[in-house]
Design a protein around this nucleic acid. Structure first.
Lengths: 229, 229
DNA sequence: CTTAAAAAATGACGATTGTCAGCTTTCTTA
DNA sequence: TAAGAAAGCTGACAATCGTCATTTTTTAAG
């Protein structure tokens, strides 16, 4: 269980920050950053923001995991990304000055800090390293999404599942993948039933091991092979 | 036929620029920009850059159209975007300092100016409006791609074709869509044969009219309806 | 511990879509 | 303008995948 009082979390000691866009801050800047953020505890399945709402700032994940998704015309979710500790979410739409085109929701209980739009834009104005880091990050994500699109368009569900599981190995940091079958299906882009059948195949092929909902990858190489890389 | 000598093209008089990221430049800046660019004539199907090569600068489309695409594991192209006059291509990977993850190739003969990496980065450093414009543009494209991914994952080929044609109406500025069946299939994300069969359906349903390769949209509303928006 | 609700799993079945092979039309260029 | 190449089109067929209905297992709440 996470500590619901999180006064102890500071930017200075935040472990996620060290691998984040805010990693280069000097101690003065950290002081300033720390005093302009508000930390919040989120329950499992709690929304950070909804599709269609207006951005008010950025969210820094101190601990936990957040899914970024979009609803298709029939209401089915498509997961675009799963963000973990150290990542910042919600700032992309802030720049476009348009409502969010995606939604964000915790996958587990999480500690997430909030920095207001004004404060964050000021920070960017005065900090070229942060600014360039963000430009770099946005560009990198664009490249990733070109890849994602190509996979969606050209690969079979089986291949996409393998590809997705490789991503999830990183997201879950080599711990067993702990997602509902539905979320997993919505990330792969398939029906839950199809996903379950394919998991069964993978299990029979000795690629994974399943304990109820948790999936342990036994053979990463086979996944690499199936995914076609 | 385009003029192969393009000395007459200047940033000051470039019609595409007015709706581009460079539209706010004052006359001094334009002068400077103009003297740091090189204009080139490209034949149909000529590459601007290849997947895997390193970015050397940005390309400004003065006239013509460019497809941005990626090859899947079996070598099949997936078109990610079609850029037209006024758009800039090739700068996304420049920021990541990694090789291009996509390729760019003209769809028709084109006049395209080139601005070197150094020059462009300097321009961005000294020009906050350009800088913010680029951040905004990158963010907007990310939102578009989330949409694209969701469509790919959840819609039928028929629905995607309708959706794609709506995009192409804009790209071709209400003129008949003039793409090879293969390119069209590679944009929709389907086999060329499937695409051809669906075009036949659309024709029989009175949605489009076909003169050899050119496709004229007769009923945009039906497309909207089919695409599910 | 029991029970209700939610999630996971299975089966049957049909529609969509990709593949392959062959044919026709259009375009290119010599 | 003729010939070859490229693009467009058609048919047949099979596999993948989604849908719907039902059952089993797991989780959460009292």
């Amino acid at each position: 269980m996470l500590e619901k009082s999180h006064k102890h979390v500071t930017c200075q000691t935040c472990t996620g920050r060290q691998s984040s866009l805010l990693n280069h801050f000097c101690s003065d800047e950290l002081e300033h950053l720390n005093s302009h953020r508000a930390c919040n505890y989120y329950k499992k399945h709690q929304a950070l923001f909804l599709e269609g709402s207006f951005p008010r700032g950025v969210y820094c994940i101190n601990q936990g995991m957040v899914k970024i998704f979009k609803r298709g015309d029939e209401g089915k979710e498509q997961i675009i990304h799963i963000a973990k500790a150290g990542e910042m979410v919600g700032f992309r739409a802030m720049f476009t000055e348009e409502p969010y085109k995606v939604a964000a929701e915790t996958l587990e209980e999480s500690n997430i800090c909030f920095i207001g739009k004004e404060d964050f834009l000021n920070l960017m104005d005065s900090n070229p390293v942060l600014r360039n880091g963000i430009i770099k990050e946005l560009s990198r994500e664009l490249a990733d999404r070109a890849d994602f699109i190509t996979n969606m368009a050209q690969k079979s569900v089986r291949e996409r599942l393998a590809f997705t599981m490789l991503i999830l190995i990183d997201v879950f940091d080599n711990e067993p993948i702990n997602l509902s079958r539905e979320d997993l299906a919505n990330f792969v882009g398939t029906a839950t039933e199809t996903l379950i059948r394919l998991l069964k195949d993978f299990k029979e092929e000795g690629i994974i091991e399943v304990q109820t909902r948790k999936i342990k990858v036994l053979d990463k190489n086979k996944l690499l092979h199936i995914s076609g890389k």
